[in-house]
Simulated scan of single mutants.
Amino acid sequence: MFKSINSRVDEPAIQDLLEYAVLFDPDALETAVRLYRAGDPYKLYGYEEEGAIAGIIGYRVTASQTLEITHLAVHPEQRMKGYGRALVLLALTEAGPERMEAVTDEEGAEFFRSIGFQITGFQDQASGEERFRCIYEVDENNEE
């Protein structure tokens, strides 16, 4: 079941998943927790399976109707079961944006490519690392 979990952001299980999304960076985790604790415009949803949160997606929708995925993580024991794809599709359904976008590393880019996003690589100015912008333009004619 897909459900809003902003109010649960301080729970250890939710923070464990957020840690995967921020690559175990304590400062980034603290920033993420503050974003979701504050709520609007940042939304945090989880996919609950058998009483436990299998994965999370955090996002905001901009004034230009772009859903910016800020965090996406699936518990390692639940990976390769379609939860990541389900989280992205459910966020799309929930928010109804015109476009979806994420910035990620190479592994994340492969995931987004596999579910139909267009990928563009770029050099992160702050870190010097290669990053990937993943974009999905919503086609109203193909929505279910």
Rank of each mutant, 00 (worst) to 15 (best):
A95I: 07
L92Q: 07
Q123W: 15
K43M: 09
I5A: 01
K43F: 06
M100E: 05
L67I: 08
Q78G: 06
P97Q: 06
I57V: 12
G46C: 06
L17R: 04
S64W: 00
D27R: 13
F132N: 02
L23R: 14
H71V: 07
E129W: 05
V103A: 02
C134A: 15
F122C: 04
A126F: 08
L29F: 11
E130G: 12
V9G: 05
H71G: 08
E129Y: 07
E107W: 13
E140H: 12
Q123Y: 07
E144V: 10
Q65R: 14
D16Y: 15
Q15C: 08
A54N: 06
L35W: 15
L87V: 10
Y136Q: 09
P41G: 01
A126D: 14
E101D: 09
Y20A: 13
R133Q: 03
R133N: 07
M80N: 13
R113A: 04
E106F: 09
Q125Y: 11
A21L: 11
D139R: 11
Q78K: 13
D27Q: 14
E30A: 15
V103R: 00
F117P: 02
A86V: 07
V88H: 00
T66A: 03
D40S: 12
A52D: 13
L44D: 00
A95F: 03
M1W: 08
Q125I: 12
V22H: 01
E48T: 04
T120G: 02
S127Y: 11
Y20S: 06
V33C: 05
D105T: 08
I56V: 12
E106S: 10
K3W: 02
L23C: 10
G46Q: 00
E110I: 03
T31H: 11
G39N: 06
H71A: 06
M80T: 15
K43N: 10
V74A: 01
I14K: 05
K81M: 05
Y42D: 07
I115M: 00
L72M: 02
L90N: 04
A86P: 14
P26H: 03
R60P: 03
A73I: 02
I135L: 07
R8C: 10
R37C: 05
G108I: 04
S64R: 11
E137F: 10
F24H: 15
E49Y: 10
I115K: 00
E49N: 13
G55Q: 01
I56M: 01
A91Y: 01
A13I: 11
F132T: 01
S114A: 08
Q15F: 07
E11L: 13
Y59F: 15
